[in-house]
Amino acid sequence: MSRGRLRFRYGVVVVASILLGIGHNASCLVADEPDTLFFDGFEGKVDDLWDPLRPDPDRMSLTSHPGKLTLKTHFGGLGGNALTRRMPLTRNLYLVPNPVEGDDDFVVTTCVESFRPVKKYQQAGVMIYDDDDNYLKFDYEHSGAEAGFKHMREKDTYRLVDTDEFMEPADRLWLRVIKRGNVYERAFSTDGEKYKVIGEAVWGDGSPQQIGIMACNGSLRDHEIEAQFDFFQIRKLTADERQDPVYLQRQELAGAWDVVSTKVNGQDLVEGPITEFNFDGGNVSFVTQGELTEVDYILNVESDPKGFTLSSLTRDAQDPVNGIYSIDDDQLVLCLSLPPGAPAPKKLESLENDGSILLTLKRSR
């Protein structure tokens, strides 16, 4: 289906929502609500835009729990190389085309009811999907000891997994992913009103192909259980979501920076090992002795000084590089602790034998 038809369908949804809202409460401020790009309440059918990947009708139902799309977990997963994976690929991936143009942003929310994972790898959640080796997944999953949130990113078969906090299963659990550029923030709620943010991570180029929901058992061969999805929504960001302080700071950092001075363990270097940085969304690349490295980074804009963490110095490194920074117009100061894994410095300075590297950068012209 063309993007033109997509925009027409989404426009109909938004207009209908406004008319219904006025009929219900004439005083409501509809204009303050963010635009809904796609919505399905699963009332007896699924929207025509859904494109189930590897459909399995025996593990999908709209009638077992009316008003819900019920997906049954099953033996199957996506982690690792799709061509060499031993287990079957996840079925019933319910996906819709990304409704935004280019790298525009969106918020995706779903609600899962009466989901009670008790065996390891039983899971249900949200998918941001390009293909079976390039996706982001945020789900509620059993670890083998307890149930909690799990976040997985895969890019060209290279997989990163984040295990977030554990919590007792709730009767209703809202899962939300907010996309800002190529950074995805994940959050949950147990009432649909107050959401708790539990992390953010970088994935892809900011223009995913499809968005949807899934339920599976991973390598667990039996103990299939139901995941009841009450609704699925994709919308634009609110004004507050667009003004996220970390997102605004990433935009201020964006671009190329030249290293103009380097100090290591309190000693000034005539020629430092790192010569330039380039910030692009949630990624940063830097040149070390002529070799280009690209990793993701995390900011803490609430600390003083502000926190800066590189996921690693090389792609395969296990420990992050912790640091602090300040930015003032066209000058950026970074102070990083070495070796990787060491606590961040407390001040923007490098002293004798303190294991720090202090970089002063100017924005490249």
Rank of each mutant, 00 (worst) to 15 (best):
V108F: 00
Q243T: 06
L313Y: 01
S61W: 05
D240Y: 05
E113V: 04
E43V: 08
P66W: 09
G79M: 12
K150E: 13
L334P: 02
R235W: 07
R176S: 08
T309A: 09
F115Y: 11
K137G: 06
R180P: 01
F138V: 07
R59F: 11
R180G: 01
W257R: 00
F75T: 06
Q122A: 11
S143D: 15
N300R: 13
V30H: 12
I211M: 08
L19V: 14
V177H: 00
F106T: 04
R85L: 13
I298E: 11
V108H: 00
K362Y: 11
S303E: 08
S17W: 03
S189V: 10
T238W: 08
G282V: 05
Y129A: 01
D40K: 02
S337T: 09
S219R: 12
G67P: 07
R172L: 04
D329R: 13
A82T: 12
R9W: 10
I225F: 04
S261W: 07
G272T: 01
V161C: 10
D164K: 14
D47F: 10
L78G: 01
D103G: 08
F232R: 01
R365C: 06
P88G: 08
S61M: 08
G23E: 10
G125I: 04
G21E: 13
T70I: 09
E271V: 14
L313Q: 02
K236C: 13
F115H: 05
P55F: 07
Q123I: 01
D58G: 05
T109G: 02
V14E: 15
R242V: 11
S17K: 10
K306D: 02
D164H: 15
R235Y: 07
G148C: 07
S303G: 09
S337H: 04
T293V: 11
I18V: 15
S61Y: 06
T63S: 15
E241A: 07
E291N: 13
K45G: 10
D40S: 05
G44M: 04
G76W: 00
I274Q: 01
G355W: 02
Q243H: 11
Y158F: 14
N322K: 09
L69G: 03
V270E: 15
G125K: 01
R5Q: 14
G77N: 06
G255C: 10
D280H: 09
G206R: 07
F138E: 02
T288Y: 11
Y10F: 12
V13I: 15
R365G: 15
E101I: 09
G181R: 02
D47E: 15
A215M: 05
F232V: 02
L299Q: 02
G41C: 09
T157G: 05
A201V: 13
G255H: 10
M214V: 14
A201Q: 10
V284N: 01
V202R: 06
P34T: 03
E185S: 14
E168W: 06
L49F: 10
Y121T: 15
L175H: 05
R363S: 02
A170Y: 03
